[in-house]
C-alpha cells in the first residue's frame, strides 16, 4: 500500500509540472525586459493560429548583406510590419522571403526554426521602434495580454 500507483503518481507529477510552468510563465513575463535589436520585426500574422512560433526578422542581419532596395523595391516588401501577406506557399513559390531563401542565395525553407524562432503569442511589431516606445506593446505574452 505504501507504493503510489503509477497513474496517480503521473497525474501528480503532471499537475506539479503544470503549476510550476504557470508560475514560471507569470514570473518571467513580468520581469523579463525585452532587449531586442533595433529594427527586429516580429511577424505573427498566421503563426500562432498555425501552431508555430512567430517569425523574427532581423533587419540588422539583412542590412549587412543587402541594401534596403533589394527587398523593399525589387521584392515588393511594403514598409509595414505585418503588412505583407506572406505565407509558406508564396515563399516556396519564390515570392517574398522565398526570393532568396531558396537554397541558392540563402538557406532554404526546411530550416523552419531559424525564422520561426519568436516567443509564442508575441504580437506583430517593430521592436525598439519609436512608435513602440510611445504606444508601448513591447512585452510578449502575458504582459501584453493584460493591456
Amino acid at each position: 500500500m505504501e507504493k503510489i500507483s503509477p497513474p496517480g503518481l503521473r497525474a501528480r507529477l503532471v499537475g506539479l509540472l503544470l503549476a510550476a510552468t504557470a508560475c514560471a510563465g507569470l514570473f518571467f513575463a513580468q520581469s523579463d525586459p525585452v532587449r531586442a535589436e533595433y529594427g527586429d520585426v516580429v511577424i505573427n500574422n498566421h503563426s500562432d493560429a498555425a501552431g508555430v512560433r512567430p517569425v523574427v526578422f532581423p533587419h540588422w542581419f539583412h542590412r549587412v548583406r543587402f541594401r534596403c532596395k533589394v527587398c523593399h523595391s525589387d521584392l515588393g516588401f511594403k514598409f509595414q510590419a505585418g503588412g505583407n501577406d506572406i505565407n509558406m506557399v508564396k515563399i516556396i513559390d519564390g515570392q517574398f522571403c522565398g526570393a532568396c531563401h531558396n537554397g541558392s542565395v540563402a538557406w532554404s525553407v526546411e530550416n523552419c526554426d531559424l525564422c520561426h524562432s519568436g516567443k509564442p503569442n508575441t504580437p506583430t511589431q517593430v521592436h525598439e521602434s519609436t512608435i513602440q516606445s510611445l504606444v508601448g506593446t513591447a512585452a510578449p505574452p502575458a504582459a501584453n495580454a493584460k493591456r
Binding site: 523574427v56 542581419f61 510578449p140
Partner: peptide, 25 residues
C-alpha cells in the same frame, strides 16, 4: 545589455533550438 544575443533578447524563444544557431548581433 545592448545588442543582446538572440537567446537573451526577450523576443526569441530560447527553447527553440534554431535560436542558438542565429548570429549574435
Amino acid at each position: 545589455k545592448r545588442n543582446a544575443p538572440p537567446a537573451e533578447d526577450g523576443i526569441h524563444d530560447a527553447a527553440n533550438p534554431g535560436t542558438h544557431a542565429l548570429q549574435p548581433p
